[in-house]
Design a protein around this nucleic acid. Sequence first.
DNA 1: CTGTATCCCAGCGGATACTG
DNA 2: CAGTATCCGCTGGGATACAG
Lengths: 168, 168
Amino acid sequence: MGHVDLHSQDAVFTRAGEFADRDAFTAAGWCAMERSLEVVGTRSAMMLVREAFYGGRRFDDLVRRTGLAETVASKRLRQLVADGLMERSPYREPGARTRYEYVLTERGRALFPLLVALMRWGRTIQGDAHGGVELAHADCGALLVPAVRCEAGHDVPIEETEARLASS
Amino acid sequence: MGHVDLHSQDAVFTRAGEFADRDAFTAAGWCAMERSLEVVGTRSAMMLVREAFYGGRRFDDLVRRTGLAETVASKRLRQLVADGLMERSPYREPGARTRYEYVLTERGRALFPLLVALMRWGRTIQGDAHGGVELAHADCGALLVPAVRCEAGHDVPIEETEARLASS
DNA sequence: CTGTATCCCAGCGGATACTG
DNA sequence: CAGTATCCGCTGGGATACAG
């Protein structure tokens, strides 16, 4: 491999430590990404989470505003509750009978960057000739964009990203 | 709606303009998020993109390192190319015969924040008792985290997020 | 080595009908 | 209003076999 990169301008992650061995990954087993996809990898799951971020709480609202079939919404909500992304709790408005509401848990709210990333990336495809909902900073009106930082606070571009096996 | 929020501590997006009308969304049609999910909403798509970020290029590598069946990888790669996330181009190492390689396009590389969000969120579920691959800042070694900013550069928490209908 | 063709199964999502 | 039960088509993904 004398001339390693024919396309060195195409930035990819660097590989550190054992992971520099190409096949080490196979031994690493399930990636954290796949675990995420097991939980929120379906259209219905993300749509319900999105509506929850928009403030939807009641079953009927979630169904109507996602456009999902009731059966699908029902099953998915149950799973989202089981997975700890939402909580189903009873509440009663004064004078009304008891209802149930679905609210995002902390784990569910942790999907905020994921939601922003999905919505923003979707805007870039198929032109911008669409209506649709967009997310903005309430204080200044500018559109939201997903970013990548490290825990030390630096902005991290792709070229400075290192993939390695977790110490664990 | 005198007492609006029973749970004002549960941060959700505020709704601006027409979108304050709950049913305006239905008229807004497909959300950009759903378009994203149409393209990268499958396990195989994101796994192939992930491997491409790790530097995988050849069909054989992508298959082995994702663990996907060849048939699935083949079909998915073709679709990723059709969707403009990857490019398939011939190249030849000196003395070897022509091969093909798959490289991320700019649009594919724009999935970087999405990948980080998925990998990071996946770590938070099912404990941290796992090996697996983690992403870090090569310069300082700290782990990557997804963030949300606005185009004006402010960090934006959920409470300062506003959902509105795109002007278009 | 880099795929494609075919067959198969499981899961997602919708339609319809029915309960509390 | 807030679901559940049942059925059914479509697609994602794997196994096997084959081709350039």
